[in-house]
Computed example of a mutant assay.
Amino acid sequence: MLSIVSAVLFFIAFLITAADISTNDTFTSTNVMLLGLTVLALHLAGVGSGWSVRSRRR
């Protein structure tokens, strides 16, 4: 799930750069790309994978 979010953020950063859209200082393509890299790093670290509950059966 987090990899899809990072792909969407990368696509938004690409659109901002390719269309030469002027945005405010906090919503630049570099900042969106850094958010995408952060989400991708969280995905690779296994944050979005969820927890598995182990049951004790005998």
Rank of each mutant, 00 (worst) to 15 (best):
N31G: 05
A41D: 11
G50V: 01
L34M: 14
A41F: 06
F10Y: 15
F14Y: 14
R54K: 15
L37T: 05
L15P: 03
L40Y: 11
N24K: 06
V39I: 06
D20M: 10
T23A: 01
M1A: 09
G36F: 05
L34V: 15
T30N: 05
I16K: 08
A13R: 04
F10Q: 04
S49P: 01
S55D: 13
A7W: 06
L2W: 09
S22Y: 13
T30Q: 05
L40F: 14
A13M: 00
M33K: 10
W51Q: 08
N31A: 08
I4H: 01
V53K: 11
F11Y: 11
A7G: 06
I21G: 09
G48P: 01
V32C: 05
G36A: 10
S55I: 13
I4W: 03
I4M: 05
L15T: 08
R54N: 11
V8M: 09
S3N: 12
M33R: 14
V8Q: 13
I21D: 08
G50F: 00
A7F: 04
F27K: 03
S22C: 00
L2H: 01
A19H: 03
S55Y: 10
S3M: 04
S52H: 12
S55H: 07
S49V: 09
V32I: 14
L2V: 02
T17P: 00
R57L: 15
A19C: 13
N31T: 08
L2G: 06
F14I: 11
R57P: 10
S29Y: 05
F27Y: 04
F14Q: 07
L2C: 05
G50H: 00
M1K: 07
V32W: 11
D20G: 11
A13Q: 07
F11W: 08
R57Y: 12
V39E: 02
V5T: 07
A41T: 13
S3Q: 14
T28L: 03
L44G: 10
I16Q: 08
I4V: 12
D20E: 15
S6P: 00
S22I: 06
T28I: 01
L44D: 03
A19R: 12
T38A: 09
I16P: 00
V5M: 04
T17A: 15
V8G: 07
R57F: 15
V47Q: 03
A45G: 00
R56C: 03
S3I: 01
A41G: 02
T26I: 11
N31P: 01
F11T: 14
T28Q: 05
V53R: 11
V39H: 00
T30W: 00
V47A: 09
I16L: 11
S49M: 10
S22K: 14
G46H: 00
W51G: 01
T38I: 10
F11E: 15
L44N: 01
V32S: 03
I12G: 09
S49L: 10
G46V: 01
V39F: 10
V8L: 14
R56Y: 13
T38S: 04
S49R: 15
A18W: 15
F14K: 10
F27S: 02
D20V: 10
